Simulated scan of single mutants.
Amino acid sequence: MMVNNNKLDLSATATSNKSVNIGDTIVNTGKVDSTISFDGASPYIGIGYRQPIASNKGLSLTSELGILYQGSPKVSLQVSPQNLVSQTDINKEIDNIRNDIDSIKYWPVASIGISYGF
């Protein structure tokens, strides 16, 4: 298990020159904020190698490759002003975002390190 703090905060401001699509509605004014997060504790599987440079003490080299299962993304979407679009359009946009990012429920992990034992 690993602690998973992966999170993405997004913000968009719609203007007359730069519209934003929310579900089936095109918005030319207002602000959209979204947060994408994952499970806090996530299963992890990996394989690693540790090579001691000295017998029991001293410098060691480490490396690890693995994969973290984050689960399905959790998406929230806030639109202001609130009456700018319908809840149906907000829900549709949340579903669109989930479909676009569903493939990142598996996250690759690679690490290389140096440690020192006393």
Rank of each mutant, 00 (worst) to 15 (best):
T29Q: 15
S16D: 09
V27L: 10
I112E: 01
P73R: 08
D100P: 03
L68T: 10
D100C: 00
Q82M: 07
K105Y: 01
F38M: 12
K92P: 01
N5S: 10
G71E: 04
M2R: 10
E93G: 08
V32G: 02
G30R: 08
T15S: 10
K7G: 11
L10K: 01
I53D: 13
I114Y: 02
I97E: 09
I47F: 12
S103G: 15
D33Q: 12
Q82K: 11
S115P: 00
L84E: 11
K7H: 06
L59C: 09
Q78A: 12
Y49L: 15
D102N: 08
T62C: 03
S42C: 04
P73H: 07
I36A: 02
E93Y: 08
M2F: 03
V3H: 09
K74R: 10
I22P: 05
T29E: 14
N21Q: 12
K31Y: 05
Q51D: 00
Q87M: 06
I114R: 01
I101A: 01
G71M: 02
K105S: 07
V20A: 04
P43K: 02
P81Q: 12
Q82H: 03
M1F: 05
V79T: 13
S16F: 08
V27C: 07
L68W: 06
G30M: 09
V27P: 05
V20K: 02
T62E: 15
E64M: 07
K31D: 15
N5Q: 13
R50M: 04
D100Q: 06
A110P: 01
G23D: 13
A12Y: 11
I114D: 03
V109I: 00
D24A: 15
D89A: 11
T29V: 15
P73E: 05
V85T: 02
A54V: 11
S111G: 00
Y49M: 14
P73T: 06
K105I: 00
R98M: 07
G113M: 04
S86C: 10
P73C: 10
L65R: 12
Y44D: 05
Y49S: 09
Q87A: 14
Q87I: 14
D95E: 06
S42F: 00
S42H: 00
I53Q: 07
I67F: 15
Y44P: 03
N6S: 13
K31H: 13
I53E: 11
S80K: 12
G40A: 03
S80Y: 13
G46E: 09
G117C: 00
T88Q: 04
K105E: 10
S86Q: 07
Y69R: 13
D100V: 00
P108I: 02
N5K: 11
I67R: 03
I22T: 08
L65S: 14
S19K: 08
L84C: 11
Q51E: 09
S86F: 04
L84G: 07
N6Q: 08
T25A: 05
F38C: 07
N56K: 03
D102W: 08
T29P: 04
S11R: 14
I47Q: 09
S60P: 06
V20M: 10
S115H: 00
S63V: 06
I45H: 06
T13P: 00
G30H: 14
N56F: 01
